[in-house]
């Protein structure tokens, strides 16, 4: 079987399209590369959707935490504490079993016991909490002069937030937020190891990598392939976020532009 045939058979295997049976013996490098790459679709799906939706909640929570009202600040604080203080792995397990037991009472929760919806919700809330903490820190370091200048121009409320506070907050938070994004994509590999079932062996990249490692008893091929894919993915994220960073900083004099410094914040 040539590599093109393998690509046709297994290229979209993680979505359930193509050959139903996974290879069982005589694993070729090509099969491993194709299947692990196919699994990467799920990592990208979880990462992108959680990041985009989490961004808005994170902004809201950060504003809540910075708010003067106790009734806004406290719940925002607890939300951040809850999701940042406990392991994502346990959050996945808890959410899965919660949805499972709720399913008994309400039919609607049937949806959330499958990974594509249930795990997405957990990742969405989790990244929102981590990003909110980043945004909150940035919000507090928005230069006083910027706000005063906005006041002098007669800007108030929504206009001031939309045109002054928010862009500055994003600009200050961006390097840390880039790390959060990279990190979120890495965290998506936990999904299928934490209760959420991979129905009909439709799993993510790590799921297939560990499948091959279990079958061949040779970790030295599938895991480096997985690592290669993730390094590529990381480079793409850094590239995209770098473009956004450029745009956010475009009004600053050249030498004052903050260069993106990448610092990983590791496991969550």
């Amino acid at each position: 079987m040539s590599c093109w045939e393998t690509l046709a058979d297994y290229g979209l295997r993680s979505l359930g399209i193509g050959e139903r049976l996974l290879p069982r013996s005589d694993f070729t490098i090509c099969q491993q590369v194709v299947l692990i790459g196919s699994g990467l679709i799920w990592n990208i799906y979880f990462g992108v959707l959680a990041l985009v939706s989490g961004f808005f909640l994170a902004t809201a929570v950060a504003l809540g935490k910075a708010s003067q009202h106790r009734w806004l600040a406290k719940p925002a604080d607890w939300f951040i504490l809850l999701f940042r203080g406990s392991p994502l792995f346990i959050q996945f397990f808890f959410a899965y079993f919660l949805f499972l037991s709720l399913k008994g009472q309400y039919e609607a929760f049937d949806l959330f016991t499958s990974a594509w919806a249930g795990a997405l919700i957990v990742l969405f809330l989790n990244t929102a909490a981590y990003s909110a903490e980043i945004f909150y820190g940035a919000l507090r370091s928005v230069p006083k002069g910027d706000i005063e200048a906005a006041d002098a121009y007669g800007m108030t409320g929504w206009v001031r937030f939309r045109r002054i506070t928010w862009p500055t907050m994003l600009r200050l938070a961006w390097p840390a937020y880039t790390n959060e994004a990279i990190f979120l994509f890495h965290a998506t590999t936990l999904v299928f190891f934490s209760g959420f079932p991979a129905r009909q062996q439709k799993g993510d990249a790590l799921y297939y990598a560990s499948y091959f490692a279990d079958k061949t008893f040779n970790p030295f091929v599938p895991y480096p392939i997985l690592a290669g894919y993730f390094i590529l993915l990381t480079l793409v994220i850094v590239g995209i976020f770098g473009l956004a960073n450029k745009r956010l900083n475009r009004h600053l004099p050249q030498e004052a532009r903050s260069r993106m410094r990448l610092r990983m914040n590791l496991i969550r």
């Binding site: 890495h186 790590l206 560990s210 008893f217 970790p219 030295f220 990381t234 990448l262």
Partner: peptide, 15 residues
């Protein structure tokens, strides 16, 4: 850096 840590965990135990 750049690689999910859980992949390291799964890899190192067997390796």
């Amino acid at each position: 850096r750049g690689v999910p840590d859980i992949a390291f965990f799964l890899f190192f135990v067997i390796a």
